[in-house]
Amino acid sequence: MGDRELADFLERQGIRDRRVLDAIAHLNRADFIPESARSAATQDSPLPIGHGQTISQPFIVALMSQALELQGPERVLEIGTGSGYQTAVLAQLCREVYSVEIVPSLADSARELLERLGFQNVHLRLGDGTLGWPEEAPFDAVIGTAAPEFVPPKVLGQLKPGGRMLMPVGPQGGNQELLCITRAPGGGVPRVQHLLPVRFVPMTGEARHLG
């Protein structure tokens, strides 16, 4: 199954956003996976990318991208670049992606790959994603690719009123939920939707000390 077939499979699984499906079809997921695992690149499953991290299941990448409801002009903050796959999907859906990765070697390899693939609207920083990217805030949308036990308050504070955050939340090895959090336009209590149970690697940095 190639990446166009992968996109067709995801459509049959309920992904309806044509821009998301086209973004996935235009990538080669194998580019974002270590050579030892590339034979499984188009399987709908997470795969290891080293350093205890994974590239997410394609369905989850598509679902999270779809749930952000991006139209094109947005500036998006991504917490956890990983191998850059989710980053590359987002880069096709919005104006600018600001991605933060805490593992130096992953940040370096993702930067090199994304530059080689020609993505000029991706800004990558090595650092603690739970601190966000305050110099570039506020953002129209935020996406997290690892699970904190609690939503990082500094990241939520960098989301524009009315903006959406997609974040897996919960303990490692325990019950995690994929949350869609919409910041209230008037600064009130955010609206939280529980989308589905998930299992992500834990978010590190200050996320270990939240709560």
Rank of each mutant, 00 (worst) to 15 (best):
S56D: 01
T42M: 04
A41D: 08
I33S: 01
A62E: 02
S36R: 13
P58T: 07
R19G: 09
M64I: 02
S65Q: 02
P46T: 14
I49Y: 04
A25P: 01
E35R: 08
A25R: 00
P34G: 08
A40Y: 08
A41M: 12
D31N: 08
E74A: 03
I55P: 00
T54A: 15
D31P: 02
P46N: 05
G80F: 06
V76R: 06
R19V: 03
E35G: 10
A41Q: 08
L63H: 15
D31E: 14
G80V: 05
E69I: 06
P48N: 04
I33L: 05
E69Q: 11
H26S: 10
P58N: 06
F59V: 10
I24W: 05
L70W: 07
A37Q: 10
D31G: 00
L47R: 12
D44G: 12
D22Q: 11
Q66G: 13
A37L: 15
A25H: 00
R19A: 14
I55G: 04
E74Y: 03
P73W: 03
I79T: 09
Q43F: 10
P58H: 10
A67E: 11
S56Y: 03
F59H: 13
G72C: 08
A30K: 14
H26V: 03
L47K: 14
E35D: 13
R75E: 15
R75M: 10
P48K: 07
D31C: 09
P73T: 07
I60E: 03
